[in-house]
Computed example of a mutant assay.
Amino acid sequence: MSRVIALVGSLRAESVTRRLAETAASVAPENVRVDIFEGLGDLPFYNEDIDNADALAAYPAVDRLRTAVGDADAVLLLTPEYNGTIPAVLKNAIDWASRPFGDGAIKGKPTAVISSSPSANAARWAKDDTAKAARVAGATVLDDADLAIGSILSAIDGKHPRDNSQIAGDIAAVVSALDAALVDA
């Protein structure tokens, strides 16, 4: 069974971005499990001065993140767009998962990005910035498996995204592409 770790760039419990991650978990192929990482808000901002065993003892969320990403077969990054770019919480998670640089937990992991926005722009800037950050961090970003969903609020009309067959199908295709990348590796 393939394991995908989903990192959600919105901390709000009922955010659309989180619901997209829940959709990924519910529409994943039978042989794929999507786990949503809990605790991105508990991570301190990346600081090389505290990136050592002694200092990190005070921040167990860092070890949990690195272990979750390291144990996963693939990574799914889900992002809204804040002020035209990636939310700080998601960028921070990528930074922690990238260290030690060149040997971080995210290195070589097949990775896909899903963005969404109430605007027609579909958070494309955030999607592109997220893909760039993940790529620089060492992830193997699947450019042909990304997804940008615009006008998300009108598309879901107050319902869960999994209830929209187009959105659910598009997300299932992204998760399937991550699984296929593992087979092809």
Rank of each mutant, 00 (worst) to 15 (best):
W96C: 03
V32C: 07
V113P: 05
G169M: 05
A21F: 01
I149G: 06
N164R: 03
G108F: 11
L40I: 13
L56A: 12
K132I: 07
Y59T: 08
A123V: 02
N31G: 06
A145R: 04
V34F: 11
I86F: 08
D128Q: 15
L7N: 12
D128S: 15
I167A: 02
V175F: 05
A68D: 11
V136K: 07
I5H: 00
I167E: 01
G150H: 07
I94G: 00
D184P: 00
N83Y: 11
P80C: 14
A180R: 13
N92P: 10
A133I: 01
Y82I: 04
S165N: 10
V174C: 11
G158K: 12
P80M: 13
G158H: 12
D146Q: 15
T85Q: 09
I171N: 05
D170G: 06
E48D: 15
L40H: 12
V113A: 06
A123W: 00
I171K: 06
A61W: 10
R64Y: 09
L43G: 09
A6Y: 01
V69T: 00
L20R: 07
A139K: 03
A131V: 07
V32L: 07
S151E: 13
D157M: 07
I36R: 01
T23C: 14
I171C: 10
D51Y: 08
E30Y: 03
R124F: 04
N31Q: 10
V113M: 09
R66Q: 09
A122V: 11
K107R: 12
A126E: 12
T67R: 15
I106S: 00
F37T: 00
P44D: 10
Y82S: 07
V75Q: 07
V136R: 09
E48V: 10
A155D: 07
S176M: 03
D71G: 02
A55Q: 14
N31D: 15
V75T: 08
R162I: 15
G84W: 09
R124C: 03
K127S: 15
